[in-house]
């Protein structure tokens, strides 16, 4: 049905003035003017979203043109970062972002899945509700608090206890070489894992809960155990939704700024060791943006922002399209 036409006017016109409670148009065209104003305000507010998103891309491209002109595509794979000689490249920032995100996802995805499994299949409802609530609260803690905890509590612990142990057993691998300083790519990945955990868990829990009870009961009826039903029915049924959730978590991890800035060490280098300090795109921006005085330096930082924007945009768009398609299909099934 179309409810787009304002109806107040027509209804009032049809009404005979003496017909009791029906509203009359007392002030000429005033109601229509108000309706028009409100409608225009709603339309322009909706347009703000479009304008901001388009503006983001335009402004970032415009402000990074100096850097784009000067370095071209090689900006993406040049490892240089030399503010004195005005020579910049994004490679170390991109590397650090990808490495920390990879560690975070490697930890958070399996952990989220088993937690979601616990909440939906294993725990009794009386336990599942408060536990689920607690996991969701992890998402409410601000990024900078994760940074404080990571820098002052987790990093010393990593340096004194975790990293020496890893080194003793796996020290021959280049991944675990170098001095255990606490801060670095590994610690950043750990903190990130904790931060994206609630987002992936929430999606996984919803997906698991959507599996029709009949399908699970059929599994149990065949004598399957809880784990077998979870593995063969629940996960199989919800796989596509899970992928969407992983994408959402990925988008968060890539763009996370403050927590990473606190613990990654902020060093422009690419090292094979997970213990080494590094930097991410967002941490470089957070650290250096207000100090950048040269136009090329500033422009290179904005170009880093542009890269981050485009990457998260692509991840988000894919996740949204994926989830929207699922929603439609799930809707048509039920």
């Amino acid at each position: 049905m179309s409810r787009s036409e304002p109806r107040g006017g027509t209804a009032a016109e049809a009404a005979v003035p003496s017909a009791g409670g029906l509203p009359r148009r007392a002030h000429g065209r005033a109601p229509l003017v108000a309706e028009g104003l409100f409608r225009t305000a709603a339309l322009s507010s909706a347009a703000v979203v479009l304008v901001v998103m388009a503006g983001l891309l335009a402004v970032l491209v415009y402000r990074s043109r100096l850097s784009i002109d000067r370095f071209g595509w090689s900006f993406l794979w040049s490892a240089a970062w030399d503010p004195v000689r005005d020579n910049f490249g994004a490679a170390s920032s991109i590397f650090g972002t990808l490495a920390a995100t990879a560690i975070a996802m490697a930890i958070a995805v399996p952990l989220s899945l088993v937690i979601a499994l616990f909440l939906v299949e294993v725990a009794p409802p009386r336990l599942a509700r408060p536990v689920g609530y607690g996991i969701e609260l992890l998402a409410a803690i601000p990024s900078i608090i994760y940074g404080m905890w990571g820098l002052f509590v987790l990093a010393p612990l990593m340096a004194d206890h975790v990293q020496p142990v890893l080194q003793r057993f796996l020290g021959r691998l280049p991944l675990f070489s170098g001095p255990p300083m606490g801060i670095g790519i590994l610690t950043a990945g750990l903190v990130l894992a904790l931060m994206v955990l609630p987002f992936i868990t929430a999606v996984a829990r919803d997906v698991f809960a959507l599996v029709p009870a009949v399908m699970k009961e059929a599994g149990y009826g065949l004598g399957a155990t809880t784990w077998e039903v979870a593995r063969k029915v629940t996960v199989g049924y919800g796989m596509k939704g899970l992928i969407g959730g992983v994408f959402l978590g990925l988008g968060r991890a890539i763009g996370e700024t403050m927590a990473v800035t606190f613990v990654i060490g902020n060093d422009h280098r690419i090292s094979a060791s997970l213990f080494a300090s590094g930097n991410s795109i967002a941490s470089t921006l957070a650290n250096e943006f207000t100090e950048a005085s040269e136009p090329v330096y500033l422009s290179a930082l904005v170009e880093l922002g542009l890269i981050l924007f485009v990457v998260t945009l692509v991840v988000q768009v894919l996740a949204q399209l994926w989830l929207a398609r699922l929603g439609r299909r799930a809707g048509s099934v039920s």
């Binding site: 983001l56 970032l60 996370e256 700024t257 967002a282 922002g305 981050l308 998260t312 988000q316």
Partner: peptide, 10 residues
């Protein structure tokens, strides 16, 4: 889902 630091940059 856009990182908040990008909004700051904008």
């Amino acid at each position: 889902g856009i990182p908040s630091i990008i909004i700051g940059l904008f």
